[in-house]
Nucleic acid binder design. Structure first.
Length: 412
DNA sequence: CTAGGGGTAAGC
DNA sequence: GCTTACCCCTAG
């Protein structure tokens, strides 16, 4: 599960990406650990623009004066007002022509969406596989390149290294490049996301080189933003697995790459306009169960945060049902699935759950081992380039558990 | 990735 | 109350 730093990166990207439906954004808010103390202009502006978007998009049976009234309320919201540019408030104060004011507000809103700064993920992606890739990789040492290779996939890594080699050859300064063939083996899931796309271009790479994601005039879905303006932005509490990265090496490496882009200044509980399910906490609220990535340089006006990174002992965990628990419906194993599982165990041996699942993809189709929310996170990360981290989370627990149950009851 | 101990809760 | 599906966690 994502760490708070991961959460920041995902939310910062998603909040400012208008095409991503607000329902998905709110679901992410509810499922990810607190991003405190990270914040950024893009995250703050994205949250504010989403709130205004919601106020202006509720056009069903709502006349222009009412729309304008709602927009004014959002613009005047003390927690949001600082993040709106001054000129947005001007059309909202034009009392004589509400329809024109609303239209102008929508136009200005489109402009604001389009002018949001790129996310830290996009910037990092640009450094790793975009226009800055050659320089970034050329300056990386062997260890760093290994990590980069894990992040971008073998084929993309090879592509970049070949370009560096060509560049060096043309300048008569042959570089000592790591042997690609000796690269740490990736499990296919990690690498294939990019390698399979080699000929058509890695999707993430395309993303890195793509235009700004914000597209003027495209309106996101806003069903879940129909709530009252004062609905607070909420998030779930954090469980142990969500605050502990599965692969700290890559996590810390990503922080090295991305952190310079993160402003990281602490923001009080001042952005509370998005209605989501879950306990009532602000996005910026300090979550007592989360590891935060505090740095001295972040500054702490309240002086409440300890300087050192905090690892919670097990007894401080907040027991909470997994957010995925409600999403995965309980499905009884069919006779065919049980027989196939036994056949698979006979053929591939007990413990080779991955092989068994791959051998009978149709039979075990509904026995997906990647939890739904992890899938969502995975998709986002694919979109943003960072696929390896999440791929490691995929485990063959369904097959293993079922076989264990069968063993327990002497079925085998 | 996997094993295995353990827990929770739905469904009967 | 029992079975079972699913989940959590740790260790290797």
């Amino acid at each position: 599960m994502p760490t708070p730093a991961d959460s920041f990166l995902i939310l910062e990207f998603v909040a400012g990406y208008r095409l991503i439906p607000h329902s998905i954004f709110t679901a992410l808010l509810a499922s990810l650990p607190s991003v405190s103390p990270h914040t950024s202009p893009r995250l703050r502006a994205g949250l504010a623009l989403r709130a205004l978007d919601a106020a202006l998009s509720d056009t069903d049976g709502v006349d222009a004066p009412s729309l304008l009234h709602k927009a004014r309320a959002v613009l005047a919201e003390p927690d949001l007002a600082p993040w709106f540019p001054q000129h947005l408030a001007e059309p909202a104060s034009a009392d004589d022509l509400p329809a024109a004011a609303v239209a102008e507000l929508k136009r200005l809103l489109d402009v604001e969406w389009a002018s949001l700064p790129p996310s830290a993920l996009e910037i990092a992606a640009e450094r790793i596989v975009g226009s800055g890739a050659l320089q970034f990789w050329a300056n990386a040492d062997h260890a760093q390149r290994s990590k980069l290779r894990l992040l971008v996939g073998e084929s993309t890594a090879r592509e970049i290294l070949e370009k560096i080699q060509q560049q060096d050859a043309s300048t008569n300064h042959p570089a000592v490049l790591p042997q690609v063939d000796n690269a740490p083996e990736t499990n296919g899931t990690n690498d294939s996301d990019c390698s399979e796309e080699k000929d058509k271009g890695c999707p993430v790479k395309q993303n890195a080189k793509a235009d700004h994601p914000q597209e003027v005039g495209v309106r996101h879905q806003q069903e879940s933003m129909q709530g009252a303006p004062n609905d607070h932005l909420k998030e779930s509490s954090v469980t142990t697995e969500s605050i502990r990265g599965k692969d700290p090496d890559i996590t810390s490496f990503m922080e090295e790459v991305i952190c310079p882009q993160i402003s990281g200044q602490f923001t009080p509980d001042n952005i509370k306009n998005h209605q989501v399910t879950g306990p009532n906490h602000s996005l910026m609220e300090r979550n007592p169960t989360a590891i935060t990535y505090e740095r001295d340089s972040l500054g702490d006006p309240g002086g409440e945060r300890p300087a050192a990174k905090r690892q919670l002992p097990a007894f401080e965990r907040t027991p909470k049902p997994s957010p995925t628990a409600a999403l995965k419906t309980r499905k009884k194993w069919s006779e065919i699935q049980e027989k196939t599982l036994l056949e698979g165990v006979k053929k591939y041996g007990k413990g080779n759950w991955k092989d068994i699942k791959m051998a009978y993809p149709d039979v075990f189709e509904d026995r997906s081992t990647v939890r739904p929310l992890i899938c969502l996170y995975h998709c986002l990360c694919i979109f943003c380039l960072f696929v390896v981290k999440v791929a490691l989370m995929s485990v063959q627990v369904d097959l293993k558990d079922k076989f264990r149950n069968m063993e327990r009851h002497l079925c085998v």
